[in-house]
Design a protein around this nucleic acid. Structure first.
Length: 824
RNA sequence: GCGACCGUGGCGGAAUUGGUAUACGCGCCAGACUUAGGAUCUGGUCCCGCAAGGGGUGUCGGUUCGAGUCCGACCGGUCGCACCA
């Protein structure tokens, strides 16, 4: 393909030359201790798959790199590190599939990733690369666990996991397909294991409130808000009507507390539902119901977590036999259990208001339970609404609805009634206003091999003992049988030579924790490690961290808009509270890049439409490939990869190269070209800053077109053009820069300044509309007043034709923009 | 179901945020240079019309001097979340 390029420009050689020179000169290595204007440009680090980076990854990395290079040209000391998120279930599953040990596979993949990342011309500071699988990294991941443990932010409790009874192993949610184990197709069950949790729920209010202060896109902030899921409501306590036989008389049940966002509908609560796991279930079950209840609980427990939550919505349930008392109506209502009520949310119990909740409505219809309507549109006469009405569907709106069948609250708007009823219950000691979050504590335990061992030792005398910091890292042992097998325990739990260690406190035989931690913990703090990656004795150096953190601009995928960003924010808050860092929001500015699609669908291995960039880069060169990707569409939208379009950027670079070789000291420049030149400097800068790379490139193309049209090879314009091109085509720009006679890197140059006065031409073409339709165009001096504009317009023959015999009723004049003559 | 976003040429996409719709590029058509061209260069390229002119941004309606942009309804699509009380 080199024969299609001007024969003195060979991308392959030129790019190799500049890669070598950048490495030699340390061009991409800012002085981390003395930088005057630090700018931390971060890209989400990749998981090093065996396939290598695909075109979608390249799009994202290049997008981030363009931004970093642009900031550098603006005079910032840009730190742009890259690393590998190499622990976790993806890597482990792939290793299992191809029959290799992950410890063997991962370094190979990393080497390939690094080759690709260097080849595409990223401005990465390789001195500060890292992999989460490196003991010098996960030592500090374990250290962070210990800090949380010491601070009481880590705790252990029993929680459900997916369990395959055939493979006898724990499955991640993504390994469960339709309730079946993806490998052996056996129905998956729930098992309850002791697992480690982080108290992220202690930070709900801060995680929510801070969102308003962040320069993040609205979609990401909305996603975080939804995930946090704040809702205001009330807890209401229902008394139990009569002691059922199962309830020991010496331990009366004080009451059952429910959470509701709709206290206004309390009069319509005709039954109550508990989660099958609710602790009071046993004591509320009458002997007559015991068998049915027991069977139901067992059935619910054997459902896997995925289908329990997202599977069939068919409501099922069983009455316990006991009755509760509605605190406002005094009526006895039956207590049921049903698996549509989740133990993890609220109190694990609900008051069911079938008339005004879809789920309760469906449940009531199925089991013939009473439906009492307590809200009606405000126009309806409350007296006319029957107490027990046949409804077609639940009415769940509050706006425009008032209470009916609700005693003294009849006629009150629903929103007002929420407050009134809650207040009345509070007075009686039967309720209180409560704010609930959907977010749960973060379970970090994984019953897997490929992760950092959780640094805890269990001792019969001392209980769980943290591994002393001096003993970190707890090295992940290189065992061969890392695969899940039918022994039914975590891989590390098969190795007593590893897990039996003396208790750090008493010296007796202790047993290591054999679970590893979640990959999200690895990635929740990596940005802190990059600037300090060379220090062995501290996770992040205080001075370095102060200089470089928080991250100035973070770019990454939307798939991490919720969990990764939330966990990172949480951890920063904890580290700040513990005095380790002095900020609590790790990413000042975050933008999500779009996805590259191929033939209209998302690139994925399963669709078989993954495009590997290597061959394109080999054929066209990295610069052309980068330009092509960035020209596809706005970074935040992504684009459709079609090989055909790659011609455009290549031809463009060829033309620019030709111009560089023909550059000459300019004589007189056409005024229109000068305007285009200055306008381009401004527009390209603004567009790049807004990540609108596609229009920035278009502006550069327009400048080149204008030069061709004017027959100009002006050296000054060409030099500016090369600087503006440098973020997109870094090797090319360096070569041109050198050709223009410079001996230093183009990235030591500055983005060209523009003269605001020269950005707009002195003489403008202004459209003249007659009655809102464009009829003519007139030439006006910039800043002409209305009278002048009208006079010039009236002199125009076409305008005259349209005005003939008409009177001008109104004149709308937007200076330099448009003149509209409204005729009668 | 809930939430967010989006519908512009043959295609990817522009449109100064209410002010010349289709910038830039791909593709296509014609021509030039060529033994040759999947290279390069020049010109053309929303639709109807010889022209004057008319129509046109998913559909229908509205606000406005003026709407791709704002409002309402509908049609179509993408992405999240999904029994959260």
């Amino acid at each position: 393909m080199t024969d299609t390029v001007p024969d003195n420009y060979r991308p392959e050689q030129v790019e190799a030359k500049w890669r070598a020179r950048w490495a030699e000169r340390g061009t991409n290595q800012p002085d981390l201790d003395h930088a005057a204007r630090p700018f931390y440009n971060l890209m989400m680090f990749p998981y090093p798959s065996a396939e290598g980076l695909h075109v979608g990854n390249m799009f994202a990395f290049t997008g981030s790199d363009v931004y970093g290079r642009f900031k550098r040209l603006q005079g910032y000391d840009v730190f742009e590190p890259i690393g590998y998120d190499a622990f976790g279930i993806h890597s482990e599953n792939y290793a299992i599939k191809v029959g290799l040990h992950p410890a063997e596979l991962i370094p190979r993949n990393i080497a390939n990733f690094r080759r690709q990342l260097e080849r595409v011309g990223g401005m990465f500071d390789w001195r500060h690369s890292l992999s989460t699988t490196d003991p010098s990294y996960y030592k500090w991941t374990q250290w962070i666990f210990l800090q949380l443990l010491k601070a009481g932010k880590a705790y252990k409790k029993k929680a459900a996991v997916n369990w395959c009874p055939f493979d006898k192993t724990v499955l991640a949610n993504e390994q469960v397909e339709g309730g079946l184990c993806e490998r052996c197709k056996t129905p998956v069950e729930q098992r309850f294991l002791e697992q480690w949790f982080f108290r992220i729920t202690d930070y709900c209010d801060r995680l929510l409130a801070n969102l308003d202060t962040l320069d993040w896109s609205d979609t990401t902030r909305t996603a975080q808000r939804n995930w946090l899921g704040r809702s205001e409501g009330a807890e209401i306590t229902f008394e139990v009507a009569a002691a059922p036989a199962a309830q020991p008389p010496n331990r009366p049940i004080a009451g059952i507390t429910v959470f509701t966002t709709r206290p206004d509908t309390l009069f319509g609560a005709t039954f109550m539902v508990l989660a099958p796991e609710h602790p009071l279930v046993g004591r509320l079950t009458t002997p007559a119901q015991a068998a049915a209840v027991g069977a139901y609980i067992e059935a619910a427990a054997s459902k896997d977590l995925v289908s329990r939550k997202v599977g069939d919505r068919d409501k099922t349930g069983v009455p316990l036999g006991a009755m509760a008392i509605n605190p406002v109506t005094g009526h006895e209502i039956p207590i049921w259990i049903a698996d549509y009520v989740l133990m993890e949310y609220g109190t694990g119990a609900i008051m069911a208001v079938p008339a005004h909740d879809e789920r309760d409505f469906a449940f009531a219809l199925k089991y013939g339970l009473e439906i009492v309507r307590v809200l009606a549109p405000e126009r309806v006469d409350p007296a006319s609404v029957p107490g027990n009405s046949a409804m077609v569907a639940a009415e769940t709106d509050t706006a425009g609805y008032v209470l009916v069948n609700s005693g003294k609250f009849d006629g009150r708007p629903a929103e007002e009634a929420k407050r009134l009823i809650t207040a009345e219950l509070a007075e009686r000691g039967q309720g209180k206003p409560v704010v609930q979050f959907r977010l749960h504590d973060w379970c970090i335990s994984r019953q897997r091999y490929w992760g950092p061992p959780i640094p805890v030792i269990y001792c019969d005398s001392c209980g769980p003992v943290p591994v002393p910091e001096k003993d970190l890292p707890v090295i992940l042992p290189p065992i061969e049988d890392f695969r899940p097998d039918d022994s039914g325990i975590s891989p590390l739990a098969r190795h007593e030579e590893w897990y039996y260690v003396p208790c750090p406190t008493c010296g007796q035989r202790g047993r290591r924790e054999t679970d590893v931690s979640d990959t999200f913990l690895d990635s929740a703090w990596y940005y802190l490690r990059y600037p300090s990656s060379e220090f062995d004795d501290r996770p992040f150096d205080p001075a370095r961290t102060k200089k470089w953190c928080p991250v100035t601009t973070y770019i990454g995928g939307n798939e991490h808009a919720v969990l990764h960003l939330l966990y990172s924010r949480f951890l920063a808050m904890v580290l700040k509270d513990l005095g380790h860092i002095d900020f609590e929001e790790p990413f000042t500015r975050f933008r999500a890049h779009g996805l590259i699609v191929k033939d209209g669908s998302k690139m994925s291995k399963s669709r078989g439409n993954v495009v590997i960039p290597d061959e394109y880069i080999a054929q066209w060169g990295a610069d052309t490939f980068r330009m092509y990707l960035m020209f596809l569409g706005p970074l935040q939208d992504g684009g459709d990869f079609r090989e055909a379009g790659i011609n455009g950027p290549r031809r463009f670079l060829d033309r620019v190269w030709l111009m560089v070789t023909e550059a000459e000291e300019g004589g007189e420049l056409q005024k229109s070209l000068v305007v285009r030149w200055h306008a381009t400097k401004k527009k390209a800068a603004e567009d790049i800053d807004g990540l609108r790379y596609n229009t920035a490139i278009a502006a550069l193309m327009e400048l080149v077109n204008a030069m061709k049209e004017a027959g100009s090879r002006d050296r000054a314009i060409i030099a500016d053009l090369i600087v503006m091109l440098a973020p997109f085509a870094p090797h090319f720009a360096e070569e041109c820069w050198e050709r223009l006679g410079h001996t230093t890197s183009v990235f030591d140059a500055r983005w060209p300044a523009w003269d605001e006065e020269l950005v707009v031409a002195d003489e403008l073409e202004v459209p003249v509309q007659i009655g809102g339709k464009t009829r003519a165009r007139i030439q006006l001096l910039r800043g002409s007043d209305e009278a002048t504009a009208v006079a010039v317009a009236k002199a125009d023959p076409t305008v005259q034709k349209f005005l003939e015999g008409k009177t001008i009723r109104k004149i709308i004049y937007v200076p330099d923009r448009l003149l509209n003559l409204v005729i009668g």
